[in-house]
Each structure stands twice: as structure tokens, then as C-alpha cells.
Design a protein around this nucleic acid. Sequence first.
DNA 1: AATGCGTGGGT
DNA 2: TACCCAAGCAT
Length: 339
Amino acid sequence: MNYKLFNESLLDWYYEVRRDLPWRETSDPYKIWLSEVMLQQTQVKTVIPYYNKFIKKYPTLDSIANENSESLLKEWEGLGYYNRIRNFHEAVKEVQSTYQSEVPNQPETFFTLKGVGPYIGGAVQSIAFNHKIAAVDGNVLRVMTRLTEDSRDISKQKTISSIKAHIETFMPDDAGNFNQAMMELGATVCTPRAPKCITCPVQAHCESFKNNTVNLYPFKKKAKAKKELYFNVYLILNDQNEIYLYKETKDLLQGMYKFPKFDVDTNVETIEDKLHIELSQPQFLGEEKHIFTHKVWYMNIYVVHTTSTNDHFVPLNEVRELPMSVAMQKVYKYIDETI
DNA sequence: AATGCGTGGGT
DNA sequence: TACCCAAGCAT
């Protein structure tokens, strides 16, 4: 492969078709960094409204560093992978306290920050500061394995780091635009299904196109089946118009508020013991299914009344101020049927 | 190194 | 429908 010609063709194409995305209007490293965190495993279309909302509310690194973490989680609500905002918050606070609120223009330093891995590190350092580091995401893996007929498993970290090292042997000085061009090519031309090889600007350099093997790449081992879990979820109302909520403190949906949730075979007495309240007979409201990356929740939703109260009870008109997962929002919408 | 972590889009 | 996939990272 003639890398010089490849780079020229790719960049010429990119300058011509480049989409206007909100984070491409800025050279502020903080904003570029935020966009990359949001874009992790999340489609551009989904990110745009969240990015605009965050930039409006938190226009500077200091403004977000000074915000409290639960408010940030609330702003992030619905975007998923909630550890991203927790880690980003920790990272910007470190930049504020240790680096005088300046995003480090030095890869070794930047890579030490929470939530900054090989991709985000490479993307921010190349786009914001033009450091020559490859940003290898799913798009780039697809483009590269097809270009070179690479059959290795792209879900293995070893494969990714090897491809990253390969790219860094030929990527041009215009590192930020090169990285974005590779991703843009993967997103719009070298797509997972029905790639547009006929109009591909680097078709002449593509081994799998030449050998008609494009559909063999990239290779990835099949995902494990999702684990199916069955729960009863309770909307517990007291006579002061309050509802029982608790904050998840670990693992899945950490930091988000949830309604009490028990295995389907748990009886009311057990729930009363665990929650330290007395309950009336639960009334069945309906069922909801929620799909995560690696599990599926089947939820039976009940409403139940109590005369008790404790610290877990929140006034109904304040529930919407707390961060809640989409799964729990599906449950909460049944509240209308109880009033 | 393999697994856990959200949600929505697209076929 | 039931998948796969999306500008991946932490552990």
C-alpha cells in the first residue's frame, strides 16, 4: 500500500465531505475532550443535543469542575454509561487543581487522567494539540482490517494496540484531521453493512475490495447471550404524597435512584423486613422490559401503600430532580395510573 | 485478558 | 424479531 497516496486521497476526501458537527466549531481542548467522552460507544446523533446542553450550561472547564456530581449525573441522564461523567468530573477537577485548569498539552500527562484511555487520549491530543497519536475506534478498526485483510479478532486489546502502532508508522503530520478522516470514512463509507466501496476515496488501496472479501472483515467473536432477570418493582406511596427511592451505590447504574426491586418470588413480609416499613397489599400495574448491554430486566410493576415514612421517602414533585435510569423511568410512568 | 457497563438506531 | 453496532474504559 502506498501510504503517501492513501493519506492524500483520504484527506482530500475528508476536507470535501466533512460534516459540520458542533464540536468541530471549537479549538477549546475542554470542549473537544467532553465531546469525545460523550461519543464513547454512542452515536453522533444521540450526542449532539447532550453536547449542546452541556456546553451551554458548562462553557468552561472550571464551571463543570465546580458543579456537584449529582447535578452532572442528572444532566447526563439518558445518555448511558454513567461512569463516564463521574470519571470526567474527577478528571477535570484534577486538571483544575493540578494543572491550573489547562488541559495538559502533553500526552503522557493527559493519559493519566480518569476516563482517558487509548482512544480518547489519542483523539484529544491529536485534534486539540496535533500530537501524532492514532485514535483507534470501531470505525478505524473496520477500515484498517478491510484495507489490509486483517483477520485478527478486533475485540482483543492486543489487536487494537497493534493496529494503532501500524497506523502511527504512516499517519501524516496533520494528525487530528487524519484521525477524524479515518473515523468519518468508517462512519459514512466503510460502513458495517453495505459499505459504499464503489465511491470509496481509498478503494485503490483496499486489499479486501480487490479480492472481494470485504464482507469477511472485521472479525469479532460473538457476544455472549444476555442474562435474563425477573423482578418485582414497587412504587411505595405513603399518605404524605411521598414515594420510596434509594440510591444505587455500586455496580450497574451507580449513583442513580431506583425504586425497590426484588426477585419475583420475594414475599411482602420479607420486603417489609428489609425496608423497615409496613405495607398494604400490592396492586399489579403492568410489566416492562429493559435491555442492557449484557442483561435484560423483566419487571412486574406494583403500587403499594404504607403509613410509614423514613429517609428514603421523597415528595412526588421532587422525583424528577433526581437522576434516574431509563429502566426506572419506565417504571415511574405508571405513577399516573395511581393518582 | 475477559468482563461489566446504558441506551437508542438500524436492519 | 433479534440481532449488531455506536468516536471505549476500568478493573
